[in-house]
Design a binder for these strands. Structure first.
Length: 799
RNA sequence: AGACCCGUAGCUCAGUUGGUUAGAGCGCUACGUUGACAUCGUAGAGGUCAGCGGUUCAAGUCCGCUCGGGUCUACCA
């Protein structure tokens, strides 16, 4: 239509149109393939499938035929959602709701007053329904009234009693229009009422609406009829009213409920064998998740799923469109009908013109894709035989994890559960991981129907690279949470990727200085290096792996990435890579081994998030022969759980504390300071780290003070449970030092007061977990020790 | 109308089973660096965790209500 062909179906005919669609599909498929590859997804491309592949069609037909035999698929005239614009039915799930400012009319109707927002449908009324207990109308039940509509037909309405009618709503009398309302259709079935269709498939009034109105559009007729009612004195009231209207998700045009024979799936019929019982499809849907056979993440989405099942009605699966799996039903004359996965033998058979809802074939996805394409060519095989004999099906079904957006839970996930439990007797997957949606900077969700919100991955990749795009969508994002993809978000990821590149280069150069290139690959991970900082690095890596594995197990991929980033930046780059610039670490072979181990480990951990950069670095710096993609996921060796870790953590704190003093005392940034340290614990590790400390805080050297000895007089003192560090001031700024200490004093006192209050609470000490109490005790002791030191120092300074 | 989600630093968001002093990125301030760093480093400012009530020794976390924002579902004539 956009290319200037107003009615392509008419002008081209079925075969030509389908050919054009095939061309279009080919282009889309190429785009999708390009995008998925550019994103670096690791797919098994040898098993690529398309829903229209012959083997999948075979499964569609087979399932349809079996469901028909089991009475789960039926054809019946029902009220369907008809799109007059697209000339097809659409399913309940393909309808969107829109508010429309409308009028609410109250019409005099025989002895009743009846309310409606669609007066034009009243031309096709065949009954008035009231609640059986409604005293106001009891006398009328069972009677028949003739109503002459102005310039319209004379209709005859029977008064029926029906529980569905709510006496509180409107006047309590409901004009029944069986042909144009699903509720009314059901009422008509219960009371065997006739059906008059006054709106046609073209969206215009039919002859049944009377000569005057026939041919008008629905809107025209509404206005014209309302005016006539007014003139005839039958219009009692007209109010403004906000109406919820149904529109088609694709055409965005109003849906017209119409009676039409269509194919349906019966969701309430108990015909499915499941766990030794015969259940309805609805019941199986419910059981698959309620029993825990399938887990939906995040958990709260299970509620949404159950809510959907509760409201599910029979699913209309036939469409009057030409692209799709054709309904496998064949007719001959008026009488003969054949349903099967192969066309019937003999002449004179014509296939049903309709196609199936796209979700019908998508619902078979987890197993139809695993059916052996060769076996599927054999028409003598039953569906059960195809399943039993297809190696991929036997090996890979059920799928472990189904990952998709939560907006598609009903369309796809629920229908896969429905169809797969029926067709295979198995659940399609064990875990459903529902990710969030991508939002633009204004918070609007990315969607095909709103091109301005769409992000084309290939464009972003051209500019920033796939790794940064991937990271931006994962780093720090919680499961199922929507995500604003903004330039600011990508900036941080850009920096991380660059940092990894640079740190890897430094590791490469450093290792190259220590060992020959040929020896590098022979560097084994040291079991127990000598230097505490090397031990610390191995232990940090070990613990990081444990944390990341834990986060992965919880499907918290964003948090896992955050953990890796923190460790990489703060522990490796900011501390370890600085520490090893100092002797004896700088020249030691064990440092080279730890460096290579760290590089390998971080590359592996980052690889799922940024496959391209890490793969490249792996090839250049670690192993040119193998691929990182194929490498073993890192394991956390228990042997690397070293006791020195706590001590080196104290060293890290010492460095930070001294830097803090430097900043607060406004010491000349380039100047070397004189530093004296009393290690109240971990003396050996502190002393081993002396040169590192000296470098990181720009001290000429570290002087060690014996426990209890006096600190230098003209110095600023940093106090910690594990150490006291004195920075000589030369021209002492006592005022600044006093302020700094008083700040720490106030802070520590406040903290201690809180801790002591907690310990004084009998209930806390007796009822809280012992570890919690022990923690508070230890912290209180530390705080007291710190206070004492700070007070002493203040006193010494006081004079 | 019903269901669900969200409300935490200027912005975008983390915060696992309730447990010390609530975190990150971006932005901001000051200083420094250009011998891994398409910069980076160091230090810092910034939060009554929407509000009210409850449970508990202990609540950002559990429960109830209210107010805001959003999504989905719906056959009110």
């Amino acid at each position: 239509q956009e290319a200037g062909m107003p009615d392509p179906r008419h002008e081209l005919g079925r075969d030509k149109l389908v050919e054009k669609i095939i061309d279009f599909v080919g282009e889309s498929r190429d785009t999708i393939r390009r995008q998925i590859r550019a994103m670096g997804s690791s797919c098994d491309w040898s098993r690529e499938r398309y829903t229209m592949d012959p083997q999948l069609n075979r499964c569609v037909n087979g399932v349809f035929a079996r469901m028909f035999r089991d009475g789960l698929i039926y054809r019946a005239p029902r009220i369907v959602n008809w799109d007059p614009h697209l000339q097809t039915t659409v399913s309940d799930d393909e309808i969107e709701h829109q508010e429309r400012h409308a009028k609410f009319y109250t019409i005099k109707y025989g002895p009743f007053l009846v309310g409606t927002s669609r007066p034009e449908t009243k031309l096709g009324d065949t009954a008035v329904a009231v609640h059986p207990d409604d005293e106001r109308y009891r006398e009328h039940i069972g009677k028949v009234y003739e109503v002459q509509w102005p310039k319209g037909p004379k209709i005859s309405v029977r008064v029926v009693a029906d529980e569905e009618v709510d006496p509180e709503t409107g006047t309590g009398a409901l004009g029944v229009t069986p042909a144009h309302s699903a509720v009314d259709f059901d009422i008509a079935e219960r009371h065997d009422l006739p059906l008059i269709q006054v709106i046609g498939e073209d969206g215009r009034m039919t002859e049944a609406a009377g000569e005057h109105y026939a041919g008008m559009t629905v809107e025209e007729c509404r206005e014209a009829f309302a005016a006539e009612l007014e003139a005839a004195g039958l219009m009692v009231e007209v109010k403004d009213y906000v109406q919820q209207t149904s529109i088609c998700y694709r055409s965005k045009k109003p849906i017209e409920p119409l009676p039409k024979p269509q194919w349906f799936i019966a969701v309430d019929k108990p015909a499915v064998p499941w766990k030794g019982r015969r259940l309805s499809l609805k019941q199986v849907l419910r059981d698959a998740v309620a029993s825990g056979d399938i887990r939906i993440l995040p958990d709260h989405q299970e509620k949404t799923y159950f809510h959907w099942i509760d409201n599910l009605r029979d699913w209309c699966i036939s469409r009057q469109i030409w692209w799709g799996h054709r309904v496998p039903v064949y007719y001959r004359g008026e009488e003969d009908m054949y349903v099967g996965h192969e066309p019937p033998v003999g002449d004179g058979w014509a296939q049903d013109e309709d196609t199936l809802d796209t979700w019908f074939s998508s619902a078979l996805w987890t197993w139809s894709t695993l059916i052996d394409p060769e076996l599927a060519k054999d028409p003598s095989k039953s569906l059960r035989e195809l399943l039993a004999e297809s190696p991929d099906y036997r090996k890979f079904h059920p799928t472990a994890v189904m990952e998709t957006g939560y907006d598609i839970l009903f369309f796809w996930v629920a229908r896969m559960i429905l169809m797969t439990t029926y067709a295979t007797g198995e659940v399609p997957f064990r875990t459903v991981y529902l990710h969030g949606l991508i939002l633009d900077k204004d918070g609007d969700k990315m969607s095909k129907s709103k091109p301005e919100t769409a992000v084309d991955p290939t464009e972003v990749i051209q500019e920033s690279g796939a790794d940064i795009l991937r990271l931006s969508m994962m780093l720090g994002n919680a499961p199922g949470q929507d995500l604003k993809l903004t330039p600011e978000r990508m900036t941080g990821c850009q920096r991380l990727v660059t940092k990894i590149w640079n740190a890897s280069k430094l590791i490469d150069v450093t290792v190259g200085r220590i060992v020959d290139a040929g020896v590098r690959s022979a560097l084994a991970v040291p079991e127990a290096p000598e230097h505490p900082v090397n031990r610390w690095m191995l232990d940090r890596l070990r613990e990081l792996i444990v944390r990341v594995d834990g986060r992965f197990a919880a499907y918290a991929f964003g948090d896992a990435a955050e953990q890796i980033r923190q460790s990489f930046w703060n522990e490796l780059c900011d501390f370890y890579l600085e520490a090893i610039k100092v002797e004896p670490l700088s020249g030691s072979r064990e440092t080279a081994a730890v460096l290579m181990h760290a590089l390998r480990t971080y590359l592996k951990l980052f690889h799922p998030y940024m496959p391209f950069v890490t793969e490249h670095l792996w090839g250049e710096l670690v192993d040119g022969e193998s691929m990182l993609l194929h490498a073993q996921w890192p394991e956390a060796p228990a042997a690397h759980d070293f006791a020195e870790t706590e001590a080196v953590d104290a060293v890290v704190r010492l460095v930070a504390a001294v830097r803090g003093v430097r900043a607060e005392q406004n010491l000349e940034p380039g100047a070397q300071i004189e530093l004296a340290v009393e290690a109240t614990s971990h003396q050996a590790v502190f002393e081993a780290c002396g040169p590192i400390i000296a470098r990181l805080v720009r001290a000429s050297e570290v002087q060690w003070i014996d426990a209890g000895a006096d600190e230098p007089a003209n110095a600023s003192l940093a106090v910690d449970p594990d150490f006291k560090a004195a920075v000589s001031l030369g021209e002492a700024d006592r005022q600044a030092e006093r302020q700094r200490l008083e700040k720490q004093l106030a802070h520590t006192e406040k903290r201690l007061a809180g801790l002591e209050k907690q310990l004084a609470n009998e209930n806390f000490v007796t009822r809280a977990k012992p570890e919690a109490v022990e923690n508070v005790r230890r912290n209180a002791e530390d705080a007291r020790a710190t206070l004492e030191s700070v007070r002493e120092r203040l006193a010494a300074l006081g004079a």
